[in-house]
């Protein structure tokens, strides 16, 4: 079991995590934060393997990963 914790207010919707995720379970959502960015969401958390590629590629330290 693994999980991602996303600090939405820090996300800038750049999508680098989406590209980096080997399991393709991240996407840019319809929800926007106070800065007006559409934030990333993990739409298939069970598939998450906790590889943390998303966090490694995130320029804004938005994602925490547990396993």
């Amino acid at each position: 079991m693994a999980a991602t914790k996303i600090k939405k207010e820090l996300c800038k919707g750049c999508g680098l995590c989406v590209t980096a995720c080997p399991k393709k379970i991240l996407r840019i959502s319809e929800e926007s934060n106070d800065n007006g960015y559409f934030v990333v969401e993990n739409f298939n958390p069970e598939e998450c393997i906790g590889c943390a590629n998303c966090a490694v590629m995130c320029p804004d330290c938005v994602i925490e990963v547990e396993r």
């Binding site: 079991m1 820090l10 919707g13 750049c14 999508g15 906790g50 995130c58 804004d60 990963v65 547990e66």
Partner: peptide, 25 residues
Amino acid sequence: MATVFKKTQMLTDTPFHYCPGCTHG
């Protein structure tokens, strides 16, 4: 579950001003 990835203490809480996707971050 154990933490696999967490923001380092050696960065302050100030959000980066960098553009979305900029690798400076």
